[in-house]
Computed example of a mutant assay.
Amino acid sequence: MSSSRLDASGARFDPGLDANPDSQRKNDHIRLALGQQQAAKRNAFDDIRFVHHSLRAVDQASVDTATSVCGAEWELPFYINAMTGGSAQAGDINAQLATAAAATGLAMATGSQHAALRRPELVPTFTTVREHDPDGFVFANVGPTVSPGQAVQAVRMLGADALQIHVNPVQEAVMAEGDRDYGAWPGRIQAIVAACPVPVVVKEVGFGLSRPTVELLASLGVGTVDVSGRGGTDFAVIENGRRADHAYWYMDSWGLSTILALLTATHPVPVPAIALLASGGVRSPLDVVKALALGARAVGVSGHFLATLTGQGVGGLIDEIHNWSSQVRALMSLLGAHTMADLKNTDMLVTGSTAEEATLLGVDLPALAHRHG
């Protein structure tokens, strides 16, 4: 281990790593994302309510929170989703997130590894995840602009169990230095899926995957998607904040909410041959359970866990993950759900703007309110 690394509670990476535009951008993202988390407010998860049935609850000891993701069995149906990497600060955060993941058995994704593919000196800011969590389930992360060979390199860099391909045209459009050539992305995704030695998840970055997009991805051979909708960290706002001219101020709140993306992907029938993950705007265990009840196999959490880590340290994050685990089990018990599958039989009310949008997109909301049989 490098002499610039300390234990899991202190800084591990030399700040000199940040003397390049890639690392500076990563630090900007961390700072601006934390600022959004501090201002977190109502989102579409609040348009969803469970119908309470007093005598349908089951014993908490009988509840099984296990789920299957990318061919692996997870004990918990939520995970630390993609955040960062590629700078000294990002490397420190990844080391601490991995420490918490290892202590709790939670799966974890890194942020985009493009910086490390371009600059070998940044590789340790990602591989620190495996150093601190050698046995956990880890997602590698690239975008559709890389070659299949680079995608495989990213997987091998981490000894990853699966690969996230992030699709982020909105972020790229607003980013001053962003890519603008989107037309080749479907073909590139298909090529990466064919070359990758591990399962591939295609993930939005907070703007939602529409049903036609999920259907297209299924036709390209993708087996799992993370719908990652609006409601959490907004990368249009972040990239606009990095621009001196703030030219794209009107892009705030672009896209589909996480709830709307789940509703359209599963109703009137689920898109065949593809599994759903959900992230974007997840603030509590109740949000986790709502997403699971709408068809997600597991739920990714980024902003809340990052804010907990920066405010309370690794120990605080470990405690929070344990609290969420207990509360997810308690909520499933109240809903009469012994397993993840049972959550799909819960009655749910959709109200507000989400109801208006879902109705326009053909979702049968009354049926969702009468699922218990």
Rank of each mutant, 00 (worst) to 15 (best):
Gly71Phe: 05
Glu172His: 00
Thr84Ala: 03
Gly206Pro: 10
Val225Arg: 04
Gln96Arg: 13
Trp185Leu: 04
Arg329Thr: 14
Gly300Phe: 01
Gly143Met: 03
Pro272Val: 01
Thr359Gln: 15
Thr354His: 02
Gly316Met: 14
Ile318Cys: 03
Leu292Asp: 13
Ala72His: 13
Asn81Glu: 15
Ile48Leu: 15
Leu55Asp: 09
Ser325Ile: 01
Phe78Gln: 11
Val271Asp: 11
Ala330Gly: 01
Gly336Asn: 03
Ile192Tyr: 08
Arg49Thr: 15
Leu216Gln: 15
Ile192Asp: 13
Leu158Trp: 02
Val214Thr: 13
Ala176Cys: 02
Val155Met: 09
Ala184Met: 06
Asp161Pro: 00
Ser253Gln: 15
Thr99Pro: 12
Ala367Gly: 09
Ala109Met: 05
Trp74Thr: 08
Phe13Ile: 04
Ile93Asp: 09
Val225Met: 10
Ile48Gly: 03
Val155Cys: 00
Val288Ser: 10
Ser23Gly: 00
Leu6Gln: 12
Gly281Tyr: 10
Ala176Glu: 14
Leu361His: 11
Val69Asp: 12
Arg188Ile: 00
Gly149Ser: 09
Leu220Cys: 14
Trp324Leu: 12
Arg12Phe: 02
Leu6Arg: 12
Ala291Pro: 03
Ser219Gly: 15
Ala236Tyr: 06
Ser353Ile: 13
Met348Tyr: 05
His338Gly: 06
Asn43Glu: 11
Asp133Gln: 02
Thr213Asn: 10
Glu204Pro: 14
Ala358Tyr: 00
Leu220Asn: 13
Ala293Ser: 14
Gly229Arg: 03
Leu217Asp: 13
Ala160Gln: 02
